[in-house]
Amino acid sequence: MNQSVIMALSLLNFFIAGETDLTFSEVAERAKLPKPTVFRLLSSLEYMDFLSKSKQSDYDVRIGLFIRVPVTT
């Protein structure tokens, strides 16, 4: 199993479980992971459009809508 994928999906679960807005510090505290690790994982989730930052604060994170439409030929 890939531990990075497991950790990233665990962070995503915080948002899916009902908390739609969490600060960077709240995520790090709940995950009990080092802040640099949390930053890297959240950045990856944001890059892939699973999460997006709000405009009010650099570290507020909101669950994003992620839909992939299959391409048919």
Rank of each mutant, 00 (worst) to 15 (best):
M1E: 14
N2W: 08
N2I: 07
N2T: 08
Q3S: 14
S4A: 15
S4R: 14
S4Q: 15
S4N: 15
V5K: 13
V5L: 15
I6Q: 11
I6Y: 10
M7I: 12
M7L: 10
M7F: 04
A8N: 04
A8C: 07
L9D: 02
S10T: 07
S10C: 01
L11E: 00
L12C: 05
N13K: 07
N13F: 04
F14Q: 03
F15Q: 08
I16K: 06
I16E: 06
G18W: 00
G18L: 00
G18Q: 02
E19Y: 06
T20V: 13
T20Q: 12
T20G: 02
T20Y: 09
D21R: 15
T23F: 04
T23S: 14
F24H: 12
F24P: 00
F24Y: 10
S25D: 15
S25L: 13
E26P: 02
E26D: 11
V27D: 07
A28S: 09
R30M: 11
R30H: 00
R30C: 00
A31T: 01
A31N: 00
K32G: 05
K32L: 08
L33T: 03
L33R: 11
P34K: 08
K35W: 01
K35S: 12
P36K: 02
P36N: 00
P36H: 00
T37P: 03
T37R: 06
T37G: 03
T37V: 14
F39A: 15
F39Y: 13
R40E: 09
R40N: 12
L41Q: 14
L42R: 01
S43L: 00
S44L: 12
S44V: 06
L45C: 02
L45H: 05
L45E: 05
L45N: 03
M48P: 03
M48G: 04
M48L: 11
M48K: 12
M48Q: 06
D49R: 12
F50M: 06
F50Y: 10
L51A: 01
L51G: 05
S52N: 12
K53Q: 11
K53M: 08
S54C: 11
S54D: 13
S54H: 09
S54K: 11
K55G: 07
K55T: 11
Q56H: 08
Q56V: 05
Q56A: 09
Q56L: 10
S57P: 02
D58L: 09
Y59I: 08
Y59C: 14
D60G: 04
D60K: 03
D60Y: 12
D60I: 09
I63V: 10
I63K: 08
G64S: 15
F66K: 14
F66T: 12
F66Y: 12
I67C: 02
I67A: 03
R68M: 13
V69D: 08
V69G: 06
V69P: 02
V69C: 09
V69F: 08
V69M: 11
P70T: 08
P70C: 06
V71N: 13
T72P: 02
T72V: 14
T73I: 10
T73A: 15
